[in-house]
Structure formats: structure tokens, C-alpha cells
Design a protein around this nucleic acid. Structure first.
Length: 118
DNA sequence: CGTGTGACGGCGC
DNA sequence: CGCGCCGCCACAC
């Protein structure tokens, strides 16, 4: 799988009312220092046919840094609809809501890390 | 091919 | 503590 495919795969697994961070996704997909690339991937995620809950990806402090890229319903309102409380574009109880892919994802497709050296 | 561009993160000051 | 620098890397052009 390509970098983008791996990122989309992980983001699709984030359940409602939970969030994860760009850094965690970057680490999980095998490029721990490429967290910016995760944001870059989210930028074009809306073009995908299947739904990708990009609003559930926030920065390490729980800030909604990607909010400017949402058309229609805002990033905050999408999260609030799932019961997440936001104040000043920031999730307060991030540690409780955090969805850690290393803990939550039991197994990945065989070709997930195919073109990657780890 | 070369280069610019980020929805980030870590580290130093 | 906050702020700013810089490494990062997939992709468009």
C-alpha cells in the first residue's frame, strides 16, 4: 500500500466520538517524522468515494488545526455532534478521547507495510 | 529530472 | 512556560 492508502486505512477505523493525532498516524504508517504528510493526505481525503472521518484527526494538543479546510459543516460541529466538547477550537479531555492506533488496531492487511523497510 | 509546498512535531532558547 | 526554527516526504508542476 502507498503512504496515502495506509493513512486513509487508519483514519477510516477511528470510531465516532474518538480522535487521534497526525503524529500517531504518521508513526503507525511507518514514517514517524512525516506528520505533516498526514495533514497533506487529509487535504484530499474528501475526494475519496468512501467516507473518511478527517475531522477526527487533530494535532498533538487537541487543536483543530485542519478546521479551515472543511466546507459545509465545520470541523468543530462535526465533532460536537459526536458528543465531543470543544472550547476555542481545542478538545480538552484529549487523553480520554484519544484513539491510539497501536493499541486499537489488531492487524493490518498483508501488504500494508509492503514497500517499506521495517 | 529539480523545486516548492504544507491539516505537524520536537527541540532549543 | 511560549516561541521559532528546521527536519520531514509525497506529490504537483
Amino acid at each position: 500500500m502507498t503512504f496515502i492508502e495506509r493513512v486513509y486505512y487508519v483514519v477510516r477505523l477511528i470510531p465516532p466520538s474518538r480522535v487521534t493525532t497526525y503524529g500517531m498516524i504518521a508513526k503507525f504508517v511507518g514514517t514517524p517524522k512525516a506528520s505533516r504528510m498526514v495533514g497533506w493526505a487529509m487535504n484530499s481525503s474528501h475526494k475519496q468515494e468512501s467516507f473518511i472521518p478527517a475531522h477526527r484527526v487533530v494535532n498533538r494538543n487537541g487543536l483543530l488545526t485542519g478546521k479551515a479546510h472543511f466546507k459545509g459543516k465545520s470541523m468543530a460541529s462535526r465533532l460536537e455532534k459526536e458528543g465531543i466538547v470543544i472550547e476555542n477550537d481545542q478538545i480538552h479531555n484529549l487523553t480520554e478521547l484519544l484513539w491510539d492506533p497501536f493499541i486499537e488496531i489488531q492487524e493490518v492487511p498483508k501488504d500494508f507495510y509492503k514497500n517499506l523497510d521495517i
